[in-house]
């Protein structure tokens, strides 16, 4: 118990750090799924965001520029997904899967060229943490929540904004109707295809930002496979968080907590078969879904292609 208490502040720190990329990606996925697009290609979009953010940040020395360009790259990749699924009505799962194979390959290819030309490019820069005076000193949670990078704070600020958008804006409501019943939405004068494309843009930008967080705020390097399944976890948090921004925040933090627990257990029980600790976040996700993932929640037309001609 003592060890656990001593480990707790660090677990919480890991929780918050680990939650940010998942939170960003799953907020993107909320937009996507609210517009009826299940985007399983988050993993690939995150990889692109991570690499482009890293490379541009290193080249220009401006990490925020890196983030912005990374998000643009994410949008570009996700528009490819959008074109296939919205305009061509291709299967969403397979298109996403193709993105998951294609995007990391492009990122790795870019990395080969970028670092191959100059080995000094291998290590990038990091955003500095900003401690909020006073709050950062609260025991246990202070260092975790109130000593983050600006990008981390921004990710959390996004949560109420997204929540408010879907709850109170006319546009947010029409956005939701696209995922619930696109045919009806179209008769109400909503441009379903445009909304779907907008969702792709937002999803691409946010998922890429989540990836860029990994290279700009977490560790100063890009490696092939740096996303480590976080895109898939984000898909789960969207279901677990019941397609709401607040729910997704809770789910991301909970996942972050279990990842932190995994690390703490590995740190303290060194002779144990640590692969069982590594299973914790994934096993927990399944258990959480068993309790909280209901088939009745979620946009009705989620995952279904929308043929405008078939009205």
């Amino acid at each position: 118990m003592d060890v656990f208490l001593m480990s707790l502040p660090t677990i919480l720190k890991t929780m918050v750090m680990g939650a940010v990329p998942i939170l960003l990606a799953s907020l993107g996925e909320v937009f996507s799924e609210r517009a009826g697009l299940v985007n399983i290609g988050l993993e690939g979009v995150m990889a692109i965001g991570a690499f482009v953010g890293f490379a541009i940040g290193k080249m220009t020395g401006n990490l925020w520029l890196g983030l912005v360009v990374g998000m643009l790259a994410g949008i570009a990749v996700n528009l490819l997904y959008g074109f296939c699924t919205v305009t061509l009505c291709a299967d969403q799962v397979v298109t996403g899967m193709a993105i998951n194979i294609l995007a990391p390959a492009i990122a790795l290819f870019g990395y080969n060229l970028f670092v191959g030309s100059n080995p000094a490019n291998a290590t990038g820069d990091q955003m500095a943490s900003l401690a909020i005076p006073g709050l950062a000193n609260i025991p246990f949670v202070g260092n975790a929540f109130f000593n983050q990078t600006l990008m981390g704070y921004l990710a959390f600020v996004l949560v109420p904004l997204v929540w408010y958008f879907f709850k109170n804006f006319r546009f947010g409501l029409s956005f939701r109707s696209v995922g619930e019943n696109p045919q009806a939405a179209e008769t109400l004068g909503i441009n379903v295809v445009r909304v779907k494309y907008l969702a792709c843009v937002l999803c691409g930008a946010l998922a890429a930002a989540g990836g860029a967080f990994l290279t700009l705020c977490y560790t100063p390097i890009y490696t092939d496979g740096i996303v480590m399944g976080r895109g898939f976890i984000a898909l789960a948090t969207v279901i677990f968080g019941r397609w709401s921004a607040v729910g997704v925040l809770g789910a991301s933090l909970l996942f972050g907590f279990f990842d932190g627990l995994n690390v703490a257990l590995q740190a303290q029980f060194q002779a144990a078969p640590v692969m069982f600790f590594k299973m914790i976040p994934y096993a927990f996700t399944i258990v959480a879904l068993l309790f909280f993932g209901s088939k009745h929640a979620g946009p009705k037309a989620n995952g279904k292609p929308y043929f405008r001609e078939m009205r």
């Binding site: 060890v3 001593m6 480990s7 502040p9 660090t10 677990i11 720190k13 890991t14 750090m17 680990g18 990994l214 977490y218 560790t219 390097i221 490696t223 092939d224 496979g225 740096i226 480590m228 990842d259 932190g260 690390v263 703490a264 590995q266 740190a267 303290q268 060194q270 640590v274 692969m275 590594k278």
Partner: peptide, 26 residues
Amino acid sequence: GQYNFEAGFTDASFGTNLAQQWINTN
């Protein structure tokens, strides 16, 4: 001495988290 032999070779964030844990706890 503290050790971990199963960190893999790619997940840098795990290295950060594990080292943090050891710095703060041990």
